[in-house]
């Protein structure tokens, strides 16, 4: 038993140190095991299909109908979105800012999930031969999927963004909801209603008609135009484009199988306002980030307020369906933090 523990601990230590021996061992084993796995997959496919047929038939039918509906809705929007994306990339390129279009990518097929209840990863059929390196971001047609954590000659392991080990800086594009405030004045009839939003939205000042009363005989109130002195002078000059959404950065962290990732370290600055459910979340980018900027990650599904200065905790609906990955795209972008000395 002691020998067993010692052997295992030595192996763990070697692997955590990034030993090339353990990497070579894994690579060799993969080469031997791959054909066995392929044969087993072929042999057991009828059983797997039967299982899916029994357990997922209703879900698949419902999902199929939903997808048809969604396709119909999105066909028109997609054309407009593509044009906007093109325009945005051109603008970014003109200003010398990094864009996804400028990063080469490799497509790969997902060839297996992690055979464990406690690891959230998938295996893909491309590796170092295609230029893939550890740390590169992986996406599918919908959005961010994860990052490469292990790479071999012609296969690689992708850690999914739901894994508790995964963390990434993200931006929340918030569109604060307008709030209405009534300012009490001396005369309630002349109350001023201010529809206010954080600075980025044009403020509107509404002044109700002033109620005019008179004690002079023969004089009918309302028959003349009473002089009005606006209490708030609203000659505000709003610069063009100031009504764009507000962005704030936070850190996205996976929480394991069956639990949605969260974003924390959100600064609840006055300008940012209250985070709304449904706000989109994209990668933040930056020199130390694991991914280039503006890759879609998901949307805010729930905002959990916390006491003190901790700021809100956002639960995220990931746009990529991680339970049903078939093809993915690996951006050939290796973050500085993942680079190893040659």
């Amino acid at each position: 038993m002691a020998l067993l523990a010692l052997t295992s601990i030595i192996l763990i230590t070697l692997d955590l140190q990034g030993s090339s021996a353990t990497r070579a061992l894994r690579s060799t084993f993969g080469t031997i095991f791959r054909p066995i796995e392929s044969v087993t997959r072929v042999v057991t496919r009828p059983a797997s299909n039967a299982w899916y047929g029994i357990t997922h038939y209703n879900d698949v039918t419902a999902e199929n109908e939903l997808l048809r509906e969604k396709i119909a809705q999105q066909e028109g929007a997609a054309v407009a979105a593509a044009a906007s994306v093109r325009l945005s990339q051109e603008l970014l390129a003109l200003n010398g800012l990094p864009t996804l279009a400028g990063i080469n990518s490799v497509s790969a097929q997902v060839i297996g999930d992690s055979p464990s209840n406690f690891v959230q990863s998938v295996e893909i059929d491309q590796g170092t031969e295609s230029g893939i390196k550890v740390g590169m971001p992986v996406l599918n047609a919908a959005g961010l999927v994860g990052k490469i954590t292990q790479v071999f000659a012609n296969r690689a392991v992708v850690m999914l963004i739901t894994d508790p080990q995964y963390a990434l800086s993200v931006k929340i594009i918030n569109t604060p909801k307008p709030t209405t405030t009534t300012l009490p004045l001396q005369d309630p009839a002349t109350a001023v209603t201010v529809v206010s939003v954080p600075e980025t939205i044009d403020p509107q000042v509404t002044i109700p008609p002033v109620a005019v009363t008179s004690n002079i005989a023969g004089f009918t109130p309302g028959s003349i135009v009473a002089p009005r002195t606006p209490i708030i002078s609203s000659s505000l000059t709003i610069p063009p484009g100031s009504n764009v959404s507000v962005r704030e950065t936070g850190v996205l962290e996976g929480r394991g199988a069956g639990r949605v990732p969260t974003v924390r370290f959100i600064d609840t600055a006055q300008r940012f306002g209250v985070v709304q459910a449904g706000s989109p979340i994209v990668t933040a980018g930056g020199s130390l980030s694991l991914a280039p900027p503006d890759i879609v990650v998901g949307t805010v599904s729930r905002v959990r307020e916390r006491l003190g200065t901790a700021g809100p905790l956002l639960e995220i609906d990931i746009v990529a369906d991680l339970s049903n990955l078939s093809f993915v795209r690996i951006l050939l972008y290796q973050p500085i933090t993942e680079r190893t000395a040659p």
Binding site: T7, I12, R26, S114, T149, Q150, V157
Partner: peptide, 11 residues
């Protein structure tokens, strides 16, 4: 060998 956890952990 087929997991992404450190080698030796499952053993």
């Amino acid at each position: 060998m087929v997991l992404s956890t450190p080698l030796g952990l499952a053993s």
